[in-house]
Design a binder for these strands. Structure first.
Lengths: 334, 334
DNA sequence: GGCGCTGGCGCAATCGATTGCTGCCGCCTA
DNA sequence: TAGGCGGCAGCAATCGATTGCGCCAGCGCC
């Protein structure tokens, strides 16, 4: 299983390997006769040549590989971001190393990936504490781009416009006549949680509906958290619920079912983020679709620009792709 | 951002780089004085040295990287397999390149990964046609291990015991008094679909229940497929349904809801494979938990053995982890 | 006292590709 | 005719780590 190398191509074409290299890399500064060029290209094709990325990487100090680190692998939002990142890296001849960093991680994945020159840069989706994350990324000593996350002093990030997402969800509910709209909020202090809350609140006020703190409960990002928050909010008799994520919304739906409340006749439910699982719930969940795949793509593009030494523009928060209206929302009762 | 290299360590320790290398690699054949050894190790620690994987890979013709190829990224089963594979590769100092191969793929991901010596081997989860898959894997010219899939002439695979899974699901339903048990089958001709069907059928017969082809409908592996199959089966008035996957079971549940049937009072539902999404459905889905994460781990271990030149034993189908009884199954009506 | 052995370590080749520099050939100009 | 120059292509160093081989000093043995 010996792979063909540059020397094989050069020998077949009757040229030096340096010439073969120049032809195949398409180097512009050196002039090579058209006829020679074609001979080399033909040989490469015949031998099905592909450059050894390890050798090239060693010489050029570039591995043509990025690492992507996510907190969980089975979350559809991250899956979609990975998908987008994979598309973009592939387009540029890069590969994508994957790793996850659970909350129980003892070492730094970032450092593990960057040490040993395995990757040229990192795509980072993290729910970690700012300080910890900053330290670990600093130790990794490679360019990085954050996914849906801000960090002071970290200039490169691609974020979703969570505020706008919350707003259009509230708009949708208000248009259906709802005025008692509860919010299952994310982790307090978190960047996105704050944005979503602000969007929720802003939209309410825009519609002349007072903000009632009793209608907001912290749900975090799990189904169980959504369920607990919903139980707590039931006493407030909301006619609609806005979940911070699809998963918390699903947790809330389970509680409504248990409580004998009809969705959407008694209570409407909206989740932020869309994924196939939304169609598997009953009733199918109305969501705000967010460009998570695009986020992954843009982040990878940005990282490529960074390692190429360009200084890319910062990217504005990505607006929602719009509401996906399914069966979990309907007119407000009475 | 210059990383420390072996030469730096050697200089600090006052030895040749070859000596430093031998110490750090723990080479056994060469004798090195204890004192020298410690000096080198100390220098490496001081400088926070990590070997350049590109250089080492070039020299040793080993990238210490595997590729994993999955049909979809957002399927919890694959996510879990990736998770397991990542754990195992990490344990052995390997990294994991990720790629997906949609049904619309035009080129061969396998070849793309293996060409250029980026990976030492491939973990392959594929739903492709046998012939296509075989050809593409052959062209890739690297060792590979199949995930939950058999292929003639491909000796290395780690599969789940789908037959046993279907059996214990049927056992569970029969124990609850069900006798009209429908099956939402996978893709006809598929390896796993056949196994599941055989398990379903075998268990029925073991319990003295005749096999009724009218109670089996092809659902494929999507929620929509599950829904269609369920619609078709409704006329047969089953009291229980066994979905080939969690996703098809969810699709079936939606149809039952629409039809005004109560779960589990009128119809019980079981899905094969377990994942967090099972708890997000209403009612929460009873499933057969399969060791998908373990499958990924074992496959990676097996691949490591292969590239090390060992010839590992074939691995027996992994038995189910057991039933996870939630709220979607209950006693048969009347 | 010479020879050989062995422990301990350094020299240098090697993996495959990239790239600065040099060399050769032919033609043009002075 | 000599010098110069432009077009083309090869030589050889380089990236960082691994490893076969050889060197040297010290010791034991005859």
């Amino acid at each position: 299983m010996v792979r063909t190398k540059l020397a094989d191509v050069a020998r077949l074409a009757g040229v030096d390997i340096s010439t073969a290299s120049r032809v195949l890399r398409g180097e512009a500064t050196q002039r090579i006769r058209q006829e020679t060029r074609e001979r080399v290209l033909q040989s490469a094709r015949t031998l099905n040549y592909a450059p050894n990325q390890l050798a090239r990487g060693l010489r050029m100090a570039r591995s043509a590989t990025f690492g992507i680190v996510v907190p969980q692998l089975d979350n559809p939002v991250f899956a979609s971001a990975i998908f987008g990142a994979e598309k973009a890296t592939l387009r540029h001849g890069y590969s994508l190393l994957i790793a996850h960093r659970g909350s129980d991680a003892t070492d730094s994945v970032y450092q593990r990936m960057s040490h040993g020159n395995r990757v040229d840069g990192l795509l980072v989706a993290s729910l970690d504490d700012d300080k910890l994350l900053r330290n670990e990324l600093e130790a990794a000593q490679v360019p990085f781009v954050l996914l849906n996350r801000q960090l002071a002093d970290a200039p490169h990030a691609v974020v979703l416009d969570s505020r706008a997402a919350a707003e259009i969800a509230v708009d949708h509910l208000v248009a259906l006549g709802h005025r008692r709209i509860a919010h299952l909020a994310g982790r307090p202090g978190g960047f996105n949680a704050g944005e979503r809350l602000a969007g929720y609140r802003g939209a309410l006020e825009r519609h002349g509906i007072g903000f009632d703190p009793a209608l907001v409960a912290v749900a975090g990002y799990t189904a169980e958290g959504g369920a607990q928050a919903m139980r707590q909010l039931l006493a407030q008799r909301p006619t609609a619920v806005l979940g911070a994520t699809l998963v918390t919304a699903a947790g809330a739906m389970a509680v409504l079912h248990e409580g004998g409340l009809q969705i959407p006749q008694d209570v409407s439910v909206v989740g932020l983020h869309d994924a196939p699982v939304a169609t598997m719930l009953y009733p199918q969940l109305t969501t705000v679709k967010m460009p998570t795949e695009r986020m992954g793509e843009l982040a990878a593009d940005l990282l490529i620009a960074l390692v190429d030494g360009r200084t890319p523009d910062t990217i504005a928060p990505l607006p929602p792709d719009g509401m996906v209206i399914r069966s979990s929302t309907g007119p407000a009762p009475f």
